Amino acid sequence: MNSRQPVSMLPISMLIVASFLGTLSLTGCQPTAKPADDDQVSSQSEADSKPGVQSDSAAARIEEFEPLYVKEMQELQQRLQAEYEALQAADAPDSSSILPNSVSKPTPNDTDKNTDTDSTTTAATSENTASNADTSAVSTDKAGAEINTSTEVGERDLEVLKLIRIGPRKPSLLTENQLIERYQQAMQALYEPASIPLSAQDIDTLLNIMTLLPELFEHAEIAERVSIKSPALARLITQHQVWQQIEVQQALDMEQMKINQQQEFEALMKKFNDTIESYDEQIAKYEQTLEEFQ
């Protein structure tokens, strides 16, 4: 039995080695995913480095909205300037209420009375000071920590308040040529490569367009360029358009509600008039019956 045992074990070891080599060969034949990812990244970078091509319809729409934007911006600047001047006038001190001659001079009798009153007040103040000294000395230890904490909080609040501008800010007024230049520059920036970020001035101009003339971005190509250049700005434009639709729907709902209320009121008035007429007919019949009995 011992002489047959090695012969039976030999094929099993060969099978194990063969399966191991087969597994290695299959693993080596499997393709890796990194080259595909690298291709996607390279293709995306190439797409981001290419400028957008402006179609004729988009160019015509941009040119159509240019004078409308200039007109709306000029009206907005006039309103902002009027509001600024009104706030400046409201915040200005009233000089007529503070007059140096408005203080009356005391008479001699008033001077004597004031002297007596001042002496009495001084004596009472000294007594109050002496009585409050002991109380303040007792509470000093307890309030020490609170004073330190409140002082630190107060200093932080003061630093924050320094950053806040309470007074009205003077609006920047742009000329017609400046408005046209910024409008054209913002539209050109939309078609620049996606790798080039929008400047702060272009974002400000696009926000003004979104607020005053959101219909410009209803063009599919222009909306796509905004989404490519600034997804956050595209979401903001979408939210603004949704709110406009909600406002329009609310206005329609209010108008329909008024119509329904008017119809209900007219129906109630008709029913009331019909009831009054029936009462009048009954009263006339009663009066006729009374006349017949008489």
Rank of each mutant, 00 (worst) to 15 (best):
222 I>Y: 05
42 S>L: 14
283 I>F: 05
148 N>F: 11
128 N>R: 11
244 Q>D: 12
123 A>V: 00
196 I>P: 01
254 M>T: 10
165 R>T: 08
21 L>S: 00
278 S>V: 06
181 E>V: 09
182 R>E: 05
177 N>V: 11
218 E>V: 01
131 S>Q: 01
62 I>R: 04
49 S>W: 07
238 T>H: 14
39 D>I: 02
125 T>M: 12
62 I>F: 05
145 A>D: 06
214 P>N: 06
161 L>W: 07
175 T>I: 10
39 D>K: 12
104 S>M: 02
197 P>T: 10
145 A>K: 11
92 A>W: 07
25 S>L: 13
35 P>A: 11
76 L>Y: 11
159 E>A: 12
272 F>Y: 11
279 Y>H: 10
285 K>Q: 15
123 A>Y: 05
263 Q>Y: 15
21 L>E: 00
227 S>D: 04
277 E>T: 09
29 C>M: 15
69 Y>R: 02
112 D>Q: 13
115 T>I: 07
8 S>D: 01
198 L>F: 01
148 N>W: 03
32 T>L: 13
27 T>G: 08
124 A>E: 11
194 A>D: 06
39 D>M: 09
121 T>F: 05
198 L>C: 01
96 S>M: 07
150 S>A: 08
294 Q>I: 08
85 E>P: 02
78 Q>N: 12
212 L>C: 13
184 Q>A: 00
79 R>S: 09
284 A>V: 02
239 Q>K: 13
24 L>W: 01
27 T>L: 10
139 S>D: 10
183 Y>L: 02
116 D>Y: 06
112 D>L: 15
31 P>V: 15
73 M>G: 02
126 S>W: 01
276 I>D: 03
185 Q>V: 04
17 V>Q: 06
225 R>G: 00
157 D>T: 03
260 N>T: 12
103 V>G: 02
233 L>S: 14
69 Y>K: 09
33 A>S: 12
64 E>G: 03
1 M>T: 03
107 T>V: 08
84 Y>I: 05
138 V>A: 09
41 V>W: 06
154 G>A: 09
46 E>Y: 10
134 D>M: 00
293 F>W: 12
20 F>Y: 01
128 N>I: 03
155 E>K: 11
37 D>K: 09
272 F>C: 05
176 E>P: 06
91 D>F: 07
123 A>M: 08
224 E>T: 10
152 E>K: 13
20 F>R: 00
293 F>M: 08
33 A>Q: 07
281 E>S: 08
